[in-house]
Amino acid sequence: MSRWDDMTGRRTGADYAARFDALAASGADVHGEASFCTALAPPPARILDAGCGTGRVAIRLAELGHDVVGVDLDPSMLAVARERAPQVPWLEADLARLDLAAAGLSAAFDLVVAAGNVVPLVAPGTEPQVVSALARHLRPDGLLVTGFGLDAAHLPLDEPTVTLADFDAWCGDAGLQLHARFATWDGTPYAGGGYAVSVHRRTR
């Protein structure tokens, strides 16, 4: 069971969506991740939103002209995504065992994005498998983009579960090389701190 399951019981889709709807209504920019990814891979790129939740990032990417697939393990989240964007393919699946080809979808993506603390919230011990599975869905030279907290202040957890050193090692084992790292989705350079946005490129 994932850490997300432990926290939510897979029943929080509507509440999660409402929180971001309120932020958007207040004038906050809730599309930083999509803008960041579009700068790296201009449309029409093929993008996988891994741990897509209610589809906030994937739907915006589709609006920007990308060919998008969303994957998540939480059916309550996917129910919201499917209601809001029925034209986008949404798949319920465990990222550690992700195989889109077996589901009848092309598995070659220009970019895979895992935003919203996806990596720290997968099932304990499956992090390397998740990274490997995401890497396998990238075309050669494709990009894995992740953003997650490194301390309790930037996580919905009491303590961090992933270090950048471990994450980079898992990426290296999966044929990915660090391309760039930032402190925020608006491109602020990373100089240490509790949150990191990492861009890894598939080199083999």
Rank of each mutant, 00 (worst) to 15 (best):
G13I: 03
G13N: 11
Y16Q: 03
Y16C: 01
A17T: 00
A18G: 11
R19F: 14
D21S: 12
D21E: 14
A25Y: 13
S26N: 12
S26G: 15
G27A: 13
G27D: 09
D29N: 15
V30K: 14
G32K: 08
E33R: 09
A34C: 08
A34V: 05
S35K: 15
C37M: 13
T38F: 11
T38G: 11
T38V: 11
A39M: 08
L40D: 01
A41R: 12
A41F: 05
P42A: 08
P43W: 01
P43Y: 03
P44Q: 07
P44K: 03
I47F: 11
D49G: 08
A50E: 05
A50R: 03
C52A: 15
C52Q: 07
C52P: 01
G53A: 13
T54K: 00
T54D: 07
R56Y: 10
V57D: 09
V57L: 06
V57Q: 00
A58D: 05
L61C: 13
E63F: 05
G65N: 01
G65I: 07
G65P: 10
H66E: 13
H66Q: 07
D67R: 05
D67E: 15
G70M: 11
G70R: 08
V71I: 08
L73V: 14
D74K: 09
P75G: 12
S76M: 10
A79C: 06
V80W: 06
V80R: 04
R82Q: 15
E83I: 02
A85P: 05
P86S: 10
P89M: 09
W90K: 06
W90Q: 03
E92G: 10
E92P: 03
E92M: 12
A93D: 02
A93E: 04
D94V: 04
A96M: 02
A96Q: 11
A96R: 04
R97C: 05
R97E: 12
R97F: 06
L98W: 05
L98H: 07
L100G: 11
A101C: 02
A101L: 02
S106L: 03
A107C: 04
F109H: 15
D110R: 02
L111S: 07
L111F: 06
V112R: 10
A114K: 02
A114F: 01
A115R: 07
G116E: 02
N117R: 01
